[in-house]
Design a protein around this nucleic acid. Sequence first.
RNA 1: GUCCCCAUCGUCUAGCCGGCCCAGGACACGGCCCUUUCAAGGCUGUAACACGGGUUCGAAUCCCGUUGGGGACGCCA
Length: 479
Amino acid sequence: MKPRLRFAPSPSGYLHIGGARTALFNWLWARNQGGLFVLRVEDTDQERSSLDSVKAILDAMRWLGIDWDEGPEVGGPEKYGSYFQSERKAVYREHTERLIGTGHAYRCYCTKEELDRAREELKARNPKAQFVYPGTCRYRKDQPDLPFVVRFKSPQEGSTDFVDKVFGPITTPNKAQQDFVLVRTDGYPLYNLAATIDDHLMDITLVVRGRDHIGNTPQQVLLYRAFGWEPPEFAHLPMMLSPKGEKLSKRHASVSVDEYRERGYPPAGVLNYIVRFGWSSGDQEIFSRDELVQKFGWDHVNKSDGKFDEKKFADVAFEHLKRPELTPLADYAKNVRPFLAERGLASPSDAELTAAIPGVRERARTYKDAASDLDFYFRDVPEVDPKAREKLLGPEAAARLVELSATLEGLEPWDAAALEAQARQWCEARGLAVKDVAQPARVALTGRSASPPLFEVMVVLGKARTLARLKRAPSLIPA
RNA sequence: GUCCCCAUCGUCUAGCCGGCCCAGGACACGGCCCUUUCAAGGCUGUAACACGGGUUCGAAUCCCGUUGGGGACGCCA
């Protein structure tokens, strides 16, 4: 059978960068193997789940270019049913009954209040101790009128083992296992139960998830066995921690995928960074999406956690922006447009935009920066940075620019080489250093002290606008 | 507290089935070059096998211990 992988987010917020990484590893392997990638929404916690979150997560996945073969909005074979766990209650109920029937699970009538109290009392006596459910209801008779949860009857002897594709064999003594809850009082299944049933029913062959799930894998293996099912394979990923080595949170970096989009990072760059985090292919750092699919494998997935590095991330993303083979001009143009609009610039034509992009490509680290660098091209009158003007554009220099514009008037052809030759000659004839003219010209043309190469700017701007901006130079100086 | 896991430059990592490694790449940081600006680019420098025992002719690589770090132990996922 073809491999079937899945990503199963719980819709209680945006798509977390760590979640995106989990989704990516699943997706990469599915694509590499010609298997199927399933998206399943784990919304059994009614309190926290929302449709808005589902939408946000789907949008973020689409932006990253991680597409799913089965799941919300695309459906799937009839036999797999809904890809929303909240719509699968009947399935869980039926399977729970089965477990109770075979003696693998039982109803527990202890209330949350009683248990919480016991937990607190224990804590008061011994702050370090951990409450373990004592199995009070294991052999209790059914109480038809009382609310109950369903607990799994964990074995107390032996051990539960599984072989992880990343970590190798993992053994957990069963005595470390308590009678964990399968179904809540409100009838909704808990994670371990729902995930196990769904992974089996949806024919998932390999479960890839964060290392924080290693601990409940034995519980799930126990469940598979209780149902008489063969567990799938498991692969756990090392965690992506904050620069300080703590759990990654808003304090340290952007954790929402949306933020990366808003900050102007290219999706393929984001993917590249998060996959190289924990996986490698020799010394190669930069990969296209296709290359990732082709080269990905489990042999070189690391076991140890790592710390997120903003600088490295930015560099990887930048690398994608710089290389035309990774970000073709047309894509670059398409992606920079929203940021141009954000600055209140009217949409330039594709021709204008693609002519201007090569000049900013190797200096703009994000699409947002690119929009900023491109800004002066698309305003009738560029915004002038006062500092640049004060430093570089005095009255004398401005007057010279007017003179220069006159000599450029008849220049043919209007290309960078001709412009440079002409300008150099002109400077030389007057005994001027090129930079004494170039810098003031830059301010007049772009309003800034830093820009793409001057003569390229002139070419992109075109003769008419270049001359007009040069002639306007004296008016830039305040009286 | 119990259980599980991890350990190469500041960071991500190569190497890990032992000799090619007095440890390679990338980011960051420093220097030089290029240069009309900012970048980009080229060259270059600083910088790591956590520690202690084994095994072996030989260990970053295998084994044990110590230390350090992380995770799990919910009617969250």
